[in-house]
């Protein structure tokens, strides 16, 4: 029994952390809100150079041949900086799914359940998981833009005119649970950033002659956020482990991870906004970039209520 990451896994996490600190400061996230693609300029190519984007692709196909447990912390880091990229869609889902296909060289984006596909305009390949699961070329597809509350997540409805390849049930399942794990990890990272930035703010912000962080009303809110994140993170890490070792309960473990991480990040967002007061409510201030990413990802790929019902089925109905 050992519930901890290896030295190598932590070193990889640190390397990605440093890369993102350099390539994805808040200015990049803000720029993605209004630029042409909704994406970062260089973070994606730097991640590709480091091999991160092919981490789950088998070595025979040019990837790193790693597993979910090796990359879960990387997804958390991309959440921490609110990386505006189809990171989970491509790295955890699309790239390993299409590793043996011609499409593997380009960028893949994925949607699950939702008819709207993020970043479909800049992807080469579009994967849809749900009622009708398929892989389609972007070039064969007609896109119509929709606006996410998070303006960096460019959403499109997709009409495909070519003959998309159907996916079998096993492919869909692997893809879906990996993606859900990835968003859970990003939500933990987003939550940690929101907490850290709020701690900084309430220490600096003075009212009534003292830092507002000295008031219990503030302390208790932020303590609750810290608790929620403390207990959401191990569920996410366990889910990554369970997918890696093909634990029979892996799906339930991912459902638990998504429910807990979405709730923790949503709480972090709510309390971050409240503790920042009117400052945080201002559109020019960066806080809302993280808050809106939380809202988007908490809803994507099954919200907390949906995943809790999956857990309920597993324990009550079987």
């Amino acid at each position: 029994m050992r519930f901890a990451f290896t030295e190598n896994q932590l070193a990889f996490r640190d390397a990605v952390h440093d890369l993102l600190a350099k390539e994805c400061p808040p200015s990049v996230v803000r720029d993605a809100w209004t630029n042409e693609t909704g994406r970062s300029s260089t973070a994606w190519t730097e991640l590709a150079k480091m091999g991160v984007l092919g981490a789950l692709v088998p070595e025979a196909q040019g990837g790193l041949g790693l597993s979910e447990i090796d990359v879960v912390l990387l997804a958390e880091e991309t959440g921490r900086v609110a990386l505006p990229e189809p990171f989970v869609e491509h790295m955890l889902v699309g790239a390993p799914l299409l590793a043996t296909e011609a499409a593997a060289s380009g960028i893949t984006t994925v949607t699950a359940g939702d008819p709207l596909v993020p970043y479909a305009d800049t992807a080469d390949t579009i994967v849809r998981l749900g009622h009708e699961s398929f892989v389609a070329d972007r070039d064969d597809s007609t896109l119509e833009a929709h606006r996410s509350v998070d303006h960096s997540r460019r959403l499109f409805s997709v009409e495909t005119s070519g003959s998309p390849r159907a996916l079998d049930a096993a492919e869909v399942s692997t893809a879906y649970w990996r993606g859900t794990l990835g968003f859970s990890a990003q939500l933990v990272g987003l939550g940690h950033h929101l907490l850290a930035t709020t701690v900084e703010y309430v220490v600096a912000r003075r009212q009534f002659g003292v830092p507002i962080g000295s008031f219990q009303a503030i302390k208790h809110k932020l303590a609750d956020v810290r608790i929620a994140l403390e207990f959401a993170a191990p569920l996410v890490y366990r889910a990554a482990y369970s997918l890696t070792v093909s634990d029979p309960a892996a799906r339930t473990h991912v459902a638990m991870a998504k429910a807990a991480s979405a709730d923790a990040a949503t709480l972090a967002a709510r309390h971050a906004l409240q503790c920042h007061g009117a400052m945080g409510y201002s559109f020019e201030y960066d806080l809302h970039l993280w808050i809106k990413r939380v809202w988007a990802l908490a809803a994507a790929w099954g919200d907390a209520t949906w995943h809790r019902e999956l857990v309920a089925r597993a324990i009550l109905d079987t």
Binding site: F231, R238, M256, T305, R308, I315
Partner: peptide
């Protein structure tokens, strides 16, 4: 009720894992 029971299970396992 199903939501609350599922939440209990999630939290109990979270505490175990932590």
């Amino acid at each position: 009720v199903r939501q609350r029971i599922a939440q209990g299970q999630i939290d109990a396992e979270a505490y175990q894992l932590q």
